[in-house]
Simulated assay, not measured.
Amino acid sequence: MYSIPLKEFVVILVLATVVVASGVDLVTDLSHGANVDHIVKEAIVVVISLAAIAWLLLGLRQQRLEIKSLQKELEVANTSRVRPRKYVLEARKKLGDVVTRQFSEWGLTGSEVEVGWLLLKGLSLKEIALVRNTQEKTVRQQASSIYKKAGVSGRHAFSAWFIEDIL
């Protein structure tokens, strides 16, 4: 089941209230013979409100589809048919331990750790926001905080910090 984020839910609820209230008023005005100018203005409010609701719902649907697509990509990546050899798995484990320890030494928060891992995996800020069900602006702020704590200039320097001497 998919739930609508609170902010979007409230906006849709307000717009739906506008549609219902304006619609009822429009019907009442029509039955009382209000002038055409007034009827047109109220009809425009109803149409714009309905269009805004549709736009929000389509955006939420698109976001949900992008999240599902990213989840499928992640699942495919995690169930790759070509299994790495034992020495590769051991190296990955050791690197994972090093990254975890370094994140701890930098004093990253839980959210920053999640974002840090997703940055290292190559996800864009937008993709991270979708996966974490948060705003891209929030992810951007968390990434900036990570870079500052790590003493690096940005995303590429952050990734390079872990693999520079390996290559």
Rank of each mutant, 00 (worst) to 15 (best):
W106Y: 12
V82F: 02
G96R: 00
Y87T: 02
L89R: 15
D97F: 05
V99K: 09
L89V: 14
V88P: 11
S80C: 06
L89H: 08
S80Q: 08
W106C: 01
K94S: 08
K86A: 08
R83T: 05
G96Y: 04
N78R: 14
S80L: 04
Y87P: 03
K86D: 04
E105F: 08
D97M: 12
G107F: 09
T79F: 13
R85G: 05
V82P: 05
Y87C: 02
P84M: 07
V82N: 07
G107T: 08
F103Y: 15
V88S: 11
R92G: 14
L95K: 06
Q102G: 03
F103L: 05
R92V: 06
K86F: 08
T79M: 11
R85F: 12
Q102E: 14
Y87I: 01
V88G: 04
K86W: 01
R81V: 05
V88L: 15
T79N: 15
T79I: 09
S80R: 08
V82Q: 06
R85T: 00
Q102F: 10
T79Y: 10
Q102K: 15
S80E: 05
K93G: 00
R85P: 03
W106A: 03
K93A: 09
S104Q: 15
R101T: 04
R101L: 14
E105G: 10
A77Q: 10
V99Y: 00
V82H: 07
W106M: 13
V98K: 13
D97N: 07
K93M: 01
S80Y: 11
L95N: 00
Y87V: 11
S80P: 02
T79D: 12
